[in-house]
Amino acid sequence: MSMQTGLVTSTTQLRTYAPATDVSVAAPAPRLEIGRAEPGTAQRNLRTEPGPIRFIIIALAIAFLSIFVVLPLVVVFASAFSKGIGAYLAALAEPEALAAIKLTLLIAAISVTLNLVFGVIAAWAISKFEFTGKTFLITLIDLPFSVSPVISGLVFVLLFGAQGYFGPWLQAHNVHILFAVPGIALATIFVTFPFVARALIPLMQEQGTQEEEAAISLGASGLQTFFRVTLPNIKWGLLYGVLLCNARAMGEFGAVSVVSGHIRGETNTMPLLVEILYNEYQFVASFAIASLLAMLALITLVAKTVLERRLDEAEVPDGD
């Protein structure tokens, strides 16, 4: 019975609402609306900027983008393919190139995985609990963004280098961190660790703790609450953070350059190899590797756009 009355209410609401919209369409308030000039009116157009001004603004934006974004991208691919596709593929098939690609993928896999775990835990702690030192933790998470990557790398040299704090002990126990995979991974993790946490914190804060409280009051354990309620709600934000984290992990140059030692075929990641090959005048090889990184960027961009759209949907609040 109450179901029927509920229905009636919603339809009457719709009916009373509709004329109100009609009125607002019939007598529009003057507001900024691009490209909607009323034809045949002698009056000054109040709705938008005059045509020439619009043209100049749009042209300026396009020109700027062309020079700073599109042109470099075109140059990368043009140089990579300047000696034909054969030379391009041959450059990528070089053992050094293959080693660099493998190393980059390995480093990205390690740092993204660890930062995923860290980021989720940090965002969870910050957005769902109240504790002292919370603002300090948020600042700390942002630290890698504000520190130059070279300094980030240098920190690890100071810690684990031959003259560093742990250097002698590490040498005595024959543990290799600097100029080896662990050092590169550490530097990359440091540089990329804000991405996941930063993507999640606003999303989780906005979603609040009510759904978690509901789950717990329904008898769910902490883990069940996380996997059945929290994780599904943040999955798009999480993917977004992982995507950016991955792009940065693969593209990181400064910090990795300091700790890698540039051992050919062993500790060169793709960005490092690009520089080395370029300095040795092997332009095709250099740009071939660079083109892979550029493609990564393009794929990231597309995926990011798709995810952002999903995120907007996820953020639509539960209320009216």
Partner: peptide, 16 residues
């Protein structure tokens, strides 16, 4: 809270 078997209805529903 999860062991009390208490039904709780939230102001903003908190539906999943």
């Amino acid at each position: 809270a999860s062991e009390r078997q208490v039904g709780f209805v939230f102001q903003h529903y908190a539906l999943f």
